[in-house]
Write a protein that binds this DNA or RNA. Sequence first.
DNA 1: CCGTATCCAAGCCGATACTG
DNA 2: CAGTATCGGCTTGGATACGG
Lengths: 132, 132
Amino acid sequence: MVTVKQPTPRVLTCDDLTDDQDQMARQVLARTFGPWSMWALHVMYSEARPLRFSRILERVEGVSQKVLTQTLRTLERDGLITRTVFAEVPPRVEYELTTLGRALLKRALPVWNWIVTQVPKLERAREAYDAR
Amino acid sequence: MVTVKQPTPRVLTCDDLTDDQDQMARQVLARTFGPWSMWALHVMYSEARPLRFSRILERVEGVSQKVLTQTLRTLERDGLITRTVFAEVPPRVEYELTTLGRALLKRALPVWNWIVTQVPKLERAREAYDAR
DNA sequence: CCGTATCCAAGCCGATACTG
DNA sequence: CAGTATCGGCTTGGATACGG
């Protein structure tokens, strides 16, 4: 078997992915755009500085402590945020977007801002569907 | 009570939304970027013509009939696709993106294409996390 | 302060069988 | 062909109590 030299470092497209890689890409996007993740990331993005757990918990209204913990852990595992523990009393934990996380948010926020402008349309579509 | 005339049709921003509207916007995005929804929408977007249920089922590998049915119903309820039933034997059902759905996909696909290029980084981040 | 552990209820998903 | 109906296992999330 002969190894063929790659002429240029090809840009990855959808079809270049293995099934595992494809699944990872889809799941990271799915998690990022999940209601709690999106909200938490948005908070971190607009603050643009390290945030304590309790600050995030305050701003992401309606999320429970348990679910926020899980959400942030997953975002950390996906490489979108960092989690820094300070050995103090009382303990302090700070979260911040990584470069990758900021890059993703930069691309996701236009979609968010656009969907916000479409809310009236979404409401009308929902009503029309439910009326049948 | 006096009706105040709106000077200009304001562009909606995040803060103009009621809690219900905010929740609808977040949930529609969350659903759209869900792994199955994203895949199904992508298939419809690239075909750019009405697709039968079974065609979509073939292309969205790994999804069960039940879950695909649910997924498509939700997308229809969100106003992103249309569902047309033909009174034939055997029955035929066709799905197609709405204008709103196409507009959303047009904005979502760049994010998808970008995340695909970041898969190596995602894999490294995951490995680093799991190694601790 | 920032979690983890535990219990419990609700909902999701696959498999299977059946219908217009 | 494109569903609906049903059942059972599994995951998920809230509430609460406790720990470093």
